[in-house]
Design a protein around this nucleic acid. Structure first.
Lengths: 258, 258
DNA sequence: CGCTATGTGGAGAAAATTTCTCCACATAGC
DNA sequence: GCTATGTGGAGAAATTTTCTCCACATAGCG
């Protein structure tokens, strides 16, 4: 392994054509999104479609689903370690370093890696592809902030990572809410403020992202309902059963399947 | 749309047999869980199974999927309103009232209602079954806490409700993590602490629930991996997937996995 | 510029999953 | 006991997802 440019040279595999490599990256990026959105068993069609490639290309590059899991996991964990060490190095303030790391991790949608890490194949299989340790550097960020009294002492590793995993999934309801990612960052900021110790002099973080007040919530609800109604009426053309009121009707409505 | 507790009296429908009513409730409870876990398109088999009834019973009671959506929505929203007014009435402290309401709402898994509310049928269809307004009483809890300076002023309705929706879904990874519900409450407590204004004298909330530190995380990871390996080796017995074609120069053939 | 090894897309068969009906059997409630 | 009401589960039908095959495209080289 003299130079990484010819990692291929060691194997008998000839170097990939440029467009093929580009496609491979598109697929991994799409897979990360789709796994985060829909879970590890998401249909592969969807991934190919989002990547803008044919299904055959996906299968050629990743013959089994687990190959895709592993590919995504390696990519994301590598970026995660990188984000952690960069945050630690570039932010003097330990709380800001932690905050910056958490937002970066959220952007990476590490929720997509969770399924791959937990229970598909050995940790080693993934970690062999990832430079350095993943867990301890993250914990170090937390410990440093705690040592300086910037984060309450009863917070632990899982309170950092598992929240990010949760936030990296879309809201329930089928991705109807457009500003989903921005809202996740807003919620993360509030959560991070909640990590401060009692009486901390640190001010609360100014909240960006979508402020969904009651009026906005009602507008949102109405808009989505209108959309759905429209989609529905397209789908049913001739509506045999009008919503005549019968309680939880046993057989009102369109049992006449169209 | 009549309240179904005494719909029987008004309509020509004879009263339900006691066991049938019990089953209906079991189904709604199971549906709530399953919708929260897997989304609004979750397979109905799963719901019937969790409810401990046959699939036919489910179809008899709820001929269309939307009937089930509506039934769950009505039940959960009714309980939600009830929880809100109870919290407001019984807690003198406005911040504690808000906290108590949020934890109650999390237990209700209102994430399961979101899909039904957003885009399946009109709001009225649900709300006719729910006594009173849903949105404003919740907002009132927040406004009261803000008026007393117990919650920062830039927080809005959506910061309360949408976080609960998110927390009511399981962690990504296929429900492998047993203490999921308890972790959600722990995370919620941290989040609520983050709602306090700068310099608030209120102490942080003591954290219950699972404290997943680095050691626990590694143990958890290993345990799950072991489980999966076991399940895998049962399932494949013969299939030797050869997958050295990832073009990633990693020699570790995954076929060695077993 | 033209050649060819490498790469691509999409149709569609095969497999897996999910829906939903039917009917023989069970039991609550009188 | 009797019977109207309710039940479970088998399995056909419909839908979704997987995965292969092959005619066609183009990067990269001389």
């Amino acid at each position: 392994m003299s130079a990484d440019t010819d990692a291929d040279a060691l194997a008998d595999v000839p170097p990939m054509r440029a467009d093929a490599r580009r496609n491979r990256e598109q697929i991994l990026r799409a897979a990360r999104e789709v796994f985060a959105d829909q879970g590890p068993d998401a249909p592969l069609d969807e991934i190919a479609r989002r990547a803008g490639v044919g299904i055959a290309t996906l299968y050629r590059r990743f013959p089994h689903r687990d190959d895709l899991h592993r590919g995504v996991a390696i990519e994301v964990l590598t970026a995660l370690v990188e984000a952690g060490s960069r945050a630690a190095a570039e932010e003097d303030d330990a709380q800001l370093a932690l905050r910056r790391f958490m937002h970066a991790a959220l952007d990476l949608k590490i929720g997509s890696v969770m399924p791959a890490l937990l229970g598909r194949f050995t940790v080693d299989e993934i970690l062999d592809g990832v430079p350095g340790d993943v867990v301890d550097p993250i914990d170090a960020l937390l410990l440093r902030a705690q040592a300086q009294g910037l984060v309450r002492s009863d917070v632990v590793f899982g309170d950092i990572t598992m929240m990010i995993m949760r936030l990296s999934r879309p809201l329930p309801g089928g991705g109807r809410f457009a500003a989903d990612d921005a809202l996740a960052h807003r919620q993360l900021d509030i959560y991070i403020d909640g990590l401060r110790p009692t009486g901390s002099p640190r001010p609360t973080t100014p909240l960006g992202g979508p402020a969904v007040d009651v009026a906005a919530f009602k507008r949102l609800r109405q808009r989505v309902i209108d959309d759905a109604r429209e989609a529905h009426s397209e789908a049913r053309a001739d509506d045999t059963g009008h919503s005549d009121d019968t309680g939880h009707s046993d057989d009102s409505g369109e049992s006449a399947a169209d």
